[in-house]
Amino acid sequence: MMKPAEIPRDEDWAFQPRFRVLRVGSVRRGIRLEEIFWTVLQKIADARDCSVGDVILACESRLEKGANLSSALRVEAVTYLQQELEAALSKTGRQAVRNQVMASPSPCFALTGDKQLMAYNPAFIGFVQSRLSSLASDATGQGVRLSLDIQFSDLIEKLRIEGSGPATVGFVIGVERQLIRGRLNAILAPLIDREAIIGFILPN
């Protein structure tokens, strides 16, 4: 099986056509496609644990006689990307963030770049109540201010580094004039339309 090719650094690499001769079934075929489509076809092959030639053969077997194979391969590549996008979108969004926050047994919340709490669990409210005697027992997250000891943009950049894992940072929670200080583990929230983190409060 062919190894995935490195993506060229030229910003116009995706548009550059490349002619390749591959074994497709029992014959060798010469096919010209733009580089972006070869890259996606290789991703499909990797996902299916087969060769690009096998992907082409499967695509060709579905074509009617006389149909254009190059066009069919482009459709195959775009269809794969569309399916991958739909799968990714099903795992992202506000509800996905809420589910992760609510599933945590420890105090947990989701914070956006404008310092808005977009989700929090009952353990988080219990954490705040236990440290602020003036907070009503039926209080919610309304009026709770939260800030980090690192610039939000710097934290996002740090978390985006592949393999970096969670980042441990300090935080301050403010309710009226009262403050709570502590530390938390932060991860990126599964959102594509905004920057946000999920914070898991660490025990003192």
Results as ranks from 00 to 15, higher is better:
M1R: 12
M2V: 10
A5D: 15
P8G: 09
P8V: 02
P8F: 07
R9Q: 09
D10W: 02
D12M: 12
A14W: 14
Q16R: 15
Q16H: 15
P17E: 12
R18T: 13
R20K: 12
V24L: 03
G25W: 00
G25P: 00
S26C: 10
S26R: 15
G30L: 03
R32S: 08
L33I: 07
E34Q: 15
E34G: 14
V40A: 06
Q42A: 14
K43S: 10
K43P: 02
D46M: 13
A47R: 15
D49V: 09
G53S: 05
D54P: 03
V55T: 08
V55N: 04
I56P: 02
I56N: 02
A58T: 09
C59A: 10
E60S: 14
S61C: 06
L63W: 05
K65Q: 12
K65A: 14
K65V: 06
N68C: 07
L69D: 06
L69W: 11
L69C: 03
L69S: 11
S70D: 07
R74E: 04
R74G: 08
V75W: 03
A77Q: 08
V78S: 09
E84L: 11
L85Y: 15
L85R: 15
E86Q: 14
E86M: 10
A87G: 04
A88I: 00
A88L: 07
T92I: 03
R94C: 01
Q95F: 09
R98Y: 08
R98S: 14
V101Y: 09
P105A: 00
P105W: 04
S106L: 08
F109E: 01
F109L: 13
A110Q: 07
T112W: 04
G113N: 07
D114Y: 02
D114W: 01
D114C: 02
M118P: 07
Y120S: 11
F124C: 12
I125K: 11
F127I: 05
V128F: 02
S130V: 05
S134Q: 10
L135G: 02
A136H: 13
S137Q: 15
S137V: 14
T140F: 04
T140K: 14
G143C: 04
V144D: 05
S147H: 07
L148M: 06
D149H: 12
Q151M: 12
S153M: 12
D154Q: 06
I156C: 03
E157C: 11
K158Y: 03
R160L: 06
E162N: 07
G165E: 00
T168W: 07
V169L: 10
V169G: 08
I173F: 05
R177S: 15
R177T: 12
Q178T: 09
Q178K: 13
G182N: 09
L184T: 11
N185T: 04
A186C: 13
A186V: 03
I187Q: 05
I187M: 01
L188P: 02
A189R: 04
P190D: 06
L191H: 10
R194K: 13
R194G: 08
E195C: 11
E195T: 13
I198H: 07
P203Y: 00
